[in-house]
Write a protein that binds this DNA or RNA. Structure first.
Lengths: 151, 151
DNA sequence: AGCGCACTGTTATACTGTTTCATCACGGTC
DNA sequence: GACCGTGATGAAACAGTATAACAGTGCGCT
């Protein structure tokens, strides 16, 4: 995320939190910034190392901030990577899907109605009430496919 | 999994491995048995404890067996739970989806064409080549919804 | 016998996440 | 101002998950 996009994302987060009446404290803001600044998904301990540049910090610090940011939908957790990324459209609650390239480590966030729909309908058939759908597709992005295809 | 189903599953696994020319060694067979015998998803260290009833064992032992069983499609890994379950239809390679109840811990394995299809098509749109789709829906199963609904 | 290969054993370590308790800052109330 | 409840932070220890690295074993092959 470039500097402009980052600034925008942070101010959007400020606005959202103000609207919701929740507190985007300096710690949480700092963690959000670190997550967004990274181009790739970042691990909790990677964030912790960066937090430590500004003073002492322990694992619960970063996990608390991340939990809160997850609740607010400002970041997503990638279960298959044990890592976090900034949400690209935090304005509304949504069920995202992720395309994760194991070549370059890049992640694309999608919000596809067809996938969400078919998930909802199979769940409904089973009488299952979904609370958190996790959809992560590991594979190779077009760039990496092009590169490695030539090898 | 009851005793009969277990016996069937194990002999099916034997047959499959024979056909494929791969070795379902005693260790692997034992781990497969332990995974299938459990009604719920089992963690690696839980399996390890059970393996230890029959002699000393270390983490790499169980992880190696699990990795191999995953490759062969005889077990699945639930990323959101860090746990493993026996595959209900290992005969053919397939992209499964899982409904995971956070009330009772039960898991239902699905193989829904609509979901697989919409995943494949959004991936195709992005030029993304999927290798391992992970679809796990956390929520409440009908039984647990009925129970807790009354509370 | 000597070699390669797949499988296993063993030790240690890295990485990920939680529990627990103490402390601090802020807002409301008397 | 003094009191108190609540949410946020700090700090130490620990629990759970996974891998690295290297040695040993058994088996088929030439």
């Amino acid at each position: 995320m470039d500097e402009d996009t980052l600034t925008q994302a942070l101010s959007r987060a400020e606005t959202l939190c103000a609207q919701r009446g929740v507190r985007l404290t300096p710690q949480r803001r700092r963690v959000l910034e670190l997550v967004c600044r990274a181009e790739r998904p970042v691990g909790a301990y990677e964030l912790l190392d960066q937090l430590r540049d500004g003073g002492p910090a322990a694992p619960p610090t970063v996990y608390r901030a991340l939990d809160w940011l997850l609740e607010q939908g400002l970041v997503h957790k990638l279960e298959t990577l044990h890592a976090f990324i900034g949400c690209t459209h935090p304005e509304h609650p949504h069920a995202s899907q992720f395309l994760i390239c194991d070549g370059c480590g890049g992640v694309k966030e999608l919000e596809d109605k067809a996938i969400a729909g078919s998930l909802a309908s199979v769940a409904a058939e089973s009488g299952f009430r979904p609370s958190r759908p996790v959809v992560e597709v590991i594979g190779t992005c077009s760039d990496c496919a092009a590169k490695h295809g030539k090898d």
